Simulated scan of single mutants.
Amino acid sequence: MMRAAVLHGPGAPDAFCLEDVPVPPVGADDVRVAVQACGVSYRDVVERNGTYKRDVSFPLIIGLEIAGRVEATGSDVLDLKVGDHVASKAFSSCGRCRLCRSGRETTCFKRRPVRGGYAQYVSLPQDAWVRAPADLPFELICSLGPGAGVALNAVRDTARVQIGEWVLVTGASGGVGAPSVQIATAMGGRVIAISRSAAKVDFLKSLGAEHVIVAREGENFARQVKALNGGWGADVVIDTVGSRTWAASFDALAVHGRYAVVGQLFGEEISINPARIFFKRAQISGVGSVSRVQLEDAIDLVARGIVTPQVARVMPLSEIAEAHRLVEEGAVAGRIVVKP
C-alpha cells in the first residue's frame, strides 16, 4: 500500500482525502516511479474544482508535474532502468501514428493524460518519462514538462520570438509564465510582464522582464504596453491566462503580431470581430502541451543555467489542501511543490 491524496469528486481544496491505496501495477510498457516531488499546477486546480473535465473521472489521484526515481520497468521498456531520475510530460502518446511520426505528438489521438503525482508511487507509460541528470534536484525538474517545456513550445517553436521583438507575457509569475519570461529574454526578446501583484515586480525583473505592468483582473493594460514603445505594442503575446486577459492582450498586439494562446484558467467564452484579426494581420496560434524533444531541451536549459525554475515552497503531501489554496489565490511567486 501507499499514501495518496485522493479526490472523490470536484470541490474546494479540502476535497482531498489522504488515504492508503494499492501501489499501482507495472504493465509491459509502464515505468513505475517513486515520487520525490510533484509540482502543484493550475491544471491540477481546475481539475480539482471541476472547471477542467477532459478525461476526468472519480475517484482520482491528480498531479502531473512529477519527478522521481525509476522503481520498476515493464518488459517492453527500452531506454529507462531502475534508479534513473526522470521527469514527466503532461501526457503519453502512442509514438506510431502519423501525428507522432510527424513531430505532432501533442495531438496524438491516443494520447493519455499524466496524473497520479500526489502519491508515493505512480506508474505511467514509458513515453511519459524523460531522463534527467542526477545532479538536478527533484524539486526543480518536476515542473519542467508542463512549465518550462510548454514555455519553450510557446516562445521558441510557436511564436518564434526574434531578437529585439517586444514580448508580452500574461500570468508572468506562473508556472508557464515565469520560464516564458526567461526563455524570451534569452532569445533576445524585450519582455513586458503582466502581473496582478505589485509584490511580484522585483521577482519578474529578476527573471529578465524589462518592464512589469501591474494590472487588476479585467483591467485593459494595452495603453500601458504601447506607452513603453511609442505606440507599437507587442510583437508577440504569450497568454497563459486566457479569457480574462484576451481583450487587453489583443488590443496590445502590434500589427503583424503573433498571439500564442497557452492557457485558459476560467470557463468563460471570448468574442472578437474577425475584422480586427485581418486588420492587424494577426496570427493566433494554440500552444498544446510539450513534446519529448521540448522537455529534453528544457532540461538542458536548466542544466546550463539559462532557465532557473522558481520554487516558492516545498510542502509535505499532508498539506495538499493548503498548497492548492495558495496556488488558486495566486499567493506565491513560483511553483509550490509537494513531497509525498
Rank of each mutant, 00 (worst) to 15 (best):
E47N: 01
R111D: 05
P59F: 02
L168K: 08
I336L: 13
P113T: 07
F278C: 02
S206H: 09
V130Q: 12
H8W: 13
V70G: 02
V31Q: 03
A252R: 02
A134S: 14
P13C: 10
S206K: 13
N49K: 03
P22Y: 01
V169H: 05
A4F: 12
C142W: 02
Y121N: 05
C38E: 00
V236D: 04
L253H: 00
G74H: 11
M315I: 05
P340A: 14
G164P: 01
E71S: 14
A312L: 06
A90S: 14
R160F: 03
H8N: 14
A248I: 04
K89L: 15
T245W: 08
Y259I: 04
A282W: 05
L152Q: 05
M187E: 12
G164A: 05
S102W: 04
G63H: 05
P125E: 06
W166I: 05
V332A: 10
G231D: 02
R115E: 12
V82T: 14
F266S: 15
D157Q: 06
P146N: 04
Y118N: 06
A209R: 11
G27R: 11
E269N: 14
G208D: 08
G171Y: 02
L64I: 07
C97I: 01
S318L: 11
A184K: 10
S173G: 14
V114C: 03
R115T: 13
S57V: 10
R43N: 11
A15C: 11
R104D: 08
D202K: 07
I61Q: 06
A128D: 03
R115Y: 10
A4G: 06
D239L: 10
A227E: 14
Q310L: 02
G63Y: 03
T158A: 12
A331W: 04
V237Y: 06
V70K: 01
H211G: 01
G103F: 03
E328Q: 15
D79Q: 10
G230V: 12
D20Q: 14
A134Y: 03
E47Q: 12
L78Y: 07
C17F: 04
M187D: 09
T240C: 15
P309H: 00
Q182F: 11
C94Y: 07
V337P: 05
R112W: 05
R32E: 09
G218T: 11
I284Q: 04
A12R: 13
A186M: 10
D84A: 14
P340H: 01
G116I: 13
S289F: 08
V236T: 09
H256W: 12
R32F: 07
V150T: 14
Q120E: 15
V262E: 02
I277T: 09
